[in-house]
Every structure is written in C-alpha cells, then in structure tokens.
Simulated assay, not measured.
Amino acid sequence: MRNWKEMAETQPAIVKMLTNSVTKGRLAHAYLFSGGRGTGKKAVASLLAKSYFCEQKTGSEPCQSCKECQRIDSGNHPDLHEISADGTTIKVEQIRQLKKEFSLRGMESHKKFYIVNEADKMTDAAANSLLKVLEEPDGEAVAVLITSHIQRILKTILSRAQVLSFAPLPVDKLVHQLVTIHTINEKDALTASRLTSDMEEALQLCQNDWIAQARNKVIQLIDDLTLRPRYVFITLQEEWIPFFKEKTDVQIGIDLLMLWYRDVIRVQVEQTDQIVYIDQEDKLQDQALKLSQMKLGHNLQAVMDAKRRLDANTAPQLLMEQLLLRLQEG
C-alpha cells in the first residue's frame, strides 16, 4: 500500500506537482503518465485516485482505510473506471462506453476518475473518439492515460493532457536496496534491476527464486545453442515452455536473452563492470571471442523482432521456435 512519501523517493518532481494540485484543488482534467516499465505510473495513478476520492485525507495524503480507499484497493469503486487493451488494441467501442460514463454524474461523490492503461494501443478511431472527450470535459472528472511509448500517442491528445515523464530508479540504487535491505543476492538483484525500475516489481520477480530459475533457463538455452544445437528444441519443449507459461513470463524470458547478447557485446568492448550475468563471465568471454559483431547484431535483432511479434499476439511456442532458428543461422 503505497503513499506519497514513498512515491516521492523515486518520483519527487511528479509527486510534488500532483500533491500540490490535490491540496489546492487544482487537478487537471487529463494527465498522460509516460515512462518505462516499472517506473510507478500505475501506482501513482491509483494513489491519485485515492487522493481524489478520499474524504478523510490529510493534506494530499489519503487515509488508506476509509470506504473510498478500500474500494479502490479492491478494484470495485463505482466512480473509478479503468480501460485496458481488449486483445492487442483498445477499441473504439471501449472509448464510446467511457464517453457514456463521462456524461453521467458520479454515483456517490459526483466525481469520476478514469485510467486508460497502455494508451498507445488505442486504434486511430479510439484515439480520435477519446480526443473529443478531452476537448470537451463534462463535469468533475480526471482522466489518466498511461503509456510506455509516448511517440505512439496522437499529438492532438498530447496537447490536451498534462504530460508527466516518469524517471527510472537508478540501477545502482535499486540493486543496493535489493541487496542490503531485502537480502537478495547480487546476481539476481542485477538481473531484476535490468527488467524493471520498480522496487515492488523487482521483489516480486525475486520471490521464490523465480528470477534465479529464469536466468538458469536462459543460460541452459544459450548453452544448447552454442554447444548442443541438436538438443535446443528439446530444451525449448521440456524446460523453457513449461516455465515461461504466461505472455508476461515469455516477455521476461526474451528480455533475459537480450541481456545475454548485450553482455557479450560489453565483454567485447571491455565493459565487464557493466555485465548482468556476473556469474557467467567465462562463457561470455568465450562467446565474445567466437562471435563477430555482425553475428551479435543479427542475434540482437532477432530477439528484438521476437519481442515485437509477441506484442502482436504471435503464439509464444511458434515465436520461440522461429527465434531459435534465426539464432542458429550463420
């Protein structure tokens, strides 16, 4: 349960601006929260909703225990509406429903709060429909659009929302806190810090040694690609697919593959102090000697293409099989 003081440790400028607006009763009608994964955008949006509805807040700080705060935590507040992608996109029908909600008075507080997750996934029709809502705000309402890809947002929407850019928590600070405060071992802390900038998400990745097991699956796959190429598809079927079950897990697996090849490049350019797989330096050194920069570039491009195709809803097993074929080329 996050509060503004905690959020200020990682996003001080944004927290100061929002809390001042809450205290003065001057919240904008629309915000765009932009920043990388794990920078706290969703947590700030939820906390802002609490500050907006809580009737027992102290200054800008919600009480966290009243009916309004508890219903936001449980996800069933009648005047808080959240939109997420339906499949791979946010469709115009979803925005039309949102417009309908905008036209209605709040059920209890006469106020409404809206969160649009992954706003960059709106279709053109949906984005244009939302634009009309932002141009003509009706009643007392706040809309928060969340994105990790601000370049995909219509400029007309950007011009009608207050854009807040979330900075990532510095890697060294995140690693230090994971190791010293939460007693996570350094190799797992380093790996988690490259996957997210958010402390809570990093801790979740490290829970029950999940990130350690994920690293081992990636290392095993790399070993098979390098030393036992005939067995790599068996490893994929027996080890990788059963472990990386959900789409979010597959995304992390692909990110870990990308980190591996970036580590090989770091070894080639003598930046070994920046490698993530700190316990695998001998293997990284070996690959750095054997792989040309052209081949490494090909491998990284293959991994990045796979990540984009996963976002486009390609079946994970087919995607991984095709990725392995590309990694074996040349």
Rank of each mutant, 00 (worst) to 15 (best):
Q271W: 12
E108N: 09
V142D: 05
L318V: 11
L257D: 01
E246I: 09
G106F: 04
I265T: 13
V232A: 04
A30T: 11
R308N: 11
V142S: 06
L296I: 15
M320G: 05
A315D: 15
S129Y: 15
L98I: 03
L257W: 01
F113N: 06
R2Y: 04
E186C: 04
Q280N: 13
V15C: 06
G75H: 12
L80V: 08
M107S: 13
V267I: 10
R326S: 14
E9R: 06
T147Q: 01
G139E: 07
A306I: 08
Q220F: 01
I252M: 07
L310I: 07
R230D: 09
R215A: 07
G25K: 05
K247Q: 08
K290C: 08
T19P: 02
D273A: 12
K187N: 10
A306V: 05
L178D: 04
S65I: 09
I72G: 00
M199Y: 03
H176P: 03
N128C: 08
E200D: 08
N20Q: 07
K245D: 13
K57C: 13
P242V: 13
H29T: 06
I90G: 00
R71E: 14
D138F: 15
L259K: 03
F244W: 02
L47R: 00
E118H: 04
T235Q: 08
R160W: 06
V175Q: 01
K99Q: 12
K245W: 06
L291H: 09
N216S: 04
G36W: 00
M304A: 11
Q213D: 15
G36Q: 05
A30C: 10
P62L: 09
N313R: 08
V303L: 04
V276D: 03
N313C: 11
S109V: 11
P316G: 14
E186A: 13
N117I: 01
Q64H: 09
T58Q: 13
L291R: 06
E238N: 15
L300C: 09
V250I: 15
H149G: 01
L221Q: 02
K67L: 14
L225W: 07
A30K: 10
K24D: 08
E136K: 10
Q301S: 12
K57Q: 13
V142K: 02
Y31H: 00
E239G: 02
E270D: 08
A49R: 00
C66I: 10
L289G: 13
Y261R: 02
L154R: 05
N128D: 13
E93Y: 11
M294F: 09
D209Q: 11
V250D: 00
L154A: 14
Q70G: 09
D282G: 07
A125N: 15
K91T: 13
R152C: 00
N3D: 11
N313Y: 12
K5F: 12
K121W: 02
L130G: 03
K290Y: 15
D311P: 02
D249Q: 09
S21A: 08
G297L: 11
R37K: 12
W210G: 01
A288P: 07
R230F: 10
A119T: 00
V303F: 01
E135H: 06
P229M: 09
A28M: 08
K99H: 11
E270L: 05
T89V: 14
V267G: 01
I254P: 00
S129R: 06
A189M: 05
